[in-house]
C-alpha cells in the first residue's frame, strides 16, 4: 500500500503543502500582475512614441525641457528655494499657535467670554472665505502703504502675517473638529473626578484632539509650503519669482519646470507620509 492512497491526516507529512485555496489565489494574483504589467507598458510606450509625433513637440521640448538651461539655472533655483523654506519655517509655528488660540476662542462657553467666541467665528469665516492671494495683496501692499519706517515696511513681515491669518483659520477649524470628535464620555469621566472644565480641556480633550488631527493639519502645511510662492507677488524673490527672472534671462520656460521639480521632491513624500498617518489612524479606530 503506497502513501498516496492514505488520507491526508494519515500520510504523516510534516511540511504544510499549499491548500487548494492558496493555489487558486496565487494563480489569480499572478494573472492580475501580468495584466497590470502589460497595460502599464502599453500606455507608457504610447506616450513615449506618440507625444514626440505632435507637430509642436520640438518647440515645447526646446522651451520647457532644455537641459542646458536647466543645468545653468537649477542651482540658483535651489538657492532661492531656501527663502521658501525660511518663510515656511517661521510661519508654521505661528500658524499652529494662532490656530489653536482661535479654536479655543470658538469653544468658550462662559458668557463673559462671548466676545472672544464671536471673534473666533468672525475670524474663521472671513479668512476661510478669501483667496490667499487677495489677503496677501491687501495686507502686503496696504499696511506698508501707511508709511511705516524700516523694518516695519518689510514685505516679509506683512506677507507672513497674511499667510498666518489665512492658514490659522483653517487650522483652527481642523482643531475644532478634533475637539468635537472626542466622545462625551471622556468629558463625563473627567467631570466625575472633579476636574475643572479648563483642566478637562487641557489634559483630557486637547491632547487627544490634536493627535487625531495631525494628518489633516499636515495636509494644510503642505498646502502652505506651496502657497509661500504667492508672497513673490509682493516682493520676496523666492523660487517662483527667481524662475521668472531666469525665464526672462534665457527666454526659456525650463526654470519653471525646475521649480516645479523642487516643490514635488518635497511635497510628494510629505503627502505620502500624511496619507500613511491617516490610514494608520483609521485602522486603529476600527
Amino acid at each position: 500500500m503506497d502513501d498516496a492512497s492514505l488520507p491526508d491526516g494519515a500520510s504523516g507529512r510534516t511540511v504544510a503543502a499549499p491548500t487548494r485555496r492558496e493555489v487558486y489565489e496565487a494563480e489569480v494574483r499572478r494573472r492580475s500582475n501580468r495584466i497590470a504589467l502589460i497595460s502599464t507598458a502599453s500606455v507608457v510606450l504610447a506616450i513615449v512614441f506618440l507625444v514626440p509625433l505632435a507637430p509642436g513637440w520640438e518647440a515645447v521640448q526646446r522651451s520647457f525641457f532644455n537641459g542646458r538651461v536647466f543645468a545653468a539655472t537649477f542651482p540658483g533655483l535651489l538657492n532661492a528655494f531656501l527663502l521658501n523654506v525660511m518663510i515656511f519655517a517661521w510661519s508654521a509655528p505661528l500658524i499652529a499657535v494662532t490656530g489653536l488660540a482661535i479654536a479655543l476662542c470658538r469653544d468658550t462657553r462662559a458668557p463673559a467670554l462671548f466676545p472672544l467666541r464671536l471673534f473666533g467665528i468672525a475670524y474663521t469665516d472671513i479668512f476661510r472665505g478669501l483667496p490667499v492671494v487677495l489677503v496677501i495683496y491687501i495686507i502686503g501692499f496696504g499696511v506698508p502703504g501707511l508709511g511705516l519706517p524700516r523694518p516695519w515696511n518689510s514685505p516679509y513681515i506683512w506677507g507672513t502675517l497674511a499667510l498666518v491669518l489665512v492658514y490659522s483659520a483653517y487650522v483652527a477649524e481642523v482643531i475644532r473638529s478634533g475637539i468635537d470628535s472626542i466622545h462625551q464620555s471622556q468629558r463625563s469621566a473627567a467631570a466625575s473626578l472633579g476636574l475643572s472644565e479648563r483642566d478637562t480641556m487641557r489634559f483630557v480633550v486637547l491632547p487627544q484632539a490634536i493627535r487625531n488631527v495631525v494628518p489633516a493639519n499636515m495636509n494644510l502645511f503642505i498646502a502652505l509650503q506651496k502657497d509661500v510662492a504667492l508672497l513673490s507677488f509682493i516682493g520676496p524673490v523666492e523660487v517662483f519669482r527667481q524662475a521668472g527672472v531666469y525665464k526672462s534671462l534665457y527666454a526659456n520656460f525650463t526654470p519653471y519646470v525646475g521649480a516645479a521639480l523642487i516643490f514635488l521632491v518635497l511635497t510628494i513624500p510629505a503627502t505620502r507620509y500624511a496619507d500613511y498617518l491617516m490610514n494608520k489612524q483609521n485602522r486603529a479606530r476600527t
Binding site: S188, A189, G194, L195
Partner: peptide
C-alpha cells in the same frame, strides 16, 4: 458648584472611560 460634590461621590462607568493617551 458640582465639583466639590463630585470629589465626595466617585463614579465608575460601564465603558471604563479611561483616558487613552
Amino acid at each position: 458648584d458640582p465639583q466639590p460634590v463630585r470629589q465626595q461621590i466617585g463614579i465608575v462607568f460601564q465603558s471604563y472611560n479611561l483616558f487613552p493617551h
